[in-house]
Amino acid sequence: MEYTSIKWGAVNEGDALPEKSREITRTTVVSTAIATRDFQDVHHDHEAAKKSGTKDIFLNILTTGGLIGKYLTDWSGPEGELKKVDIKLAMPCYPGDTLVGTGSVMKKYEENGQHLVEIGYQMATASGGPHAMGTAILALPE
C-alpha cells in the first residue's frame, strides 16, 4: 500500500487541517479504556460513573491523547513526527457524542535542523462544546 506524507515546504501558516468526525459509542469508550489499560470504573461502569457525578461513562484521557495523535498524523502522513502535544481538557466526551477534530497551522519554523510546524487543534463534541484543545508540534519531511 502507498502512503503519502505532507512536505514541510508545501505547508503554509494559516493552512486548515481537514475536519474529521468520530462517533463515540459505548463500545468506543470501553474498548479504548481497555486498550489503554485504564480500568477506572468511570470508563466502563455506568452506575459507578453516575455515582461519581457524571451522567454516563466517559472517554479516558489517554484516549483523548490517542485520538489527537491520530488526527495529527492522519493529516501529516506517516513521515510526520509528533514532537510535543499540549492538551487542555474541557468537557467530558460521552457515548452518543460525535468528536469533531479541527486545526490549523499556526507556525512554520526550523530548529536544530528539523522542519517543524505548530498546529492549533480542537476536539469538540457536537453536543457539548470543546472536549480538548491545544497546540502540537510536528516535524515534517522537508
Partner: peptide, 30 residues
C-alpha cells in the same frame, strides 16, 4: 484497533521495515 489509527509505522510491518526505524514503533501517545 480501538483508536482506529492506521498509521503504517504502527501497523504495517512491510512499510515500517523500510522506514528510518527499521520496524514498527509504538504510537508515542501510548
Amino acid at each position: 484497533e480501538a483508536m482506529q489509527d492506521g498509521n503504517p509505522l504502527y501497523t504495517d510491518e512491510e512499510y515500517a521495515k523500510n522506514s528510518k526505524y527499521g520496524g514498527i514503533i509504538a504510537p508515542p501517545q501510548m
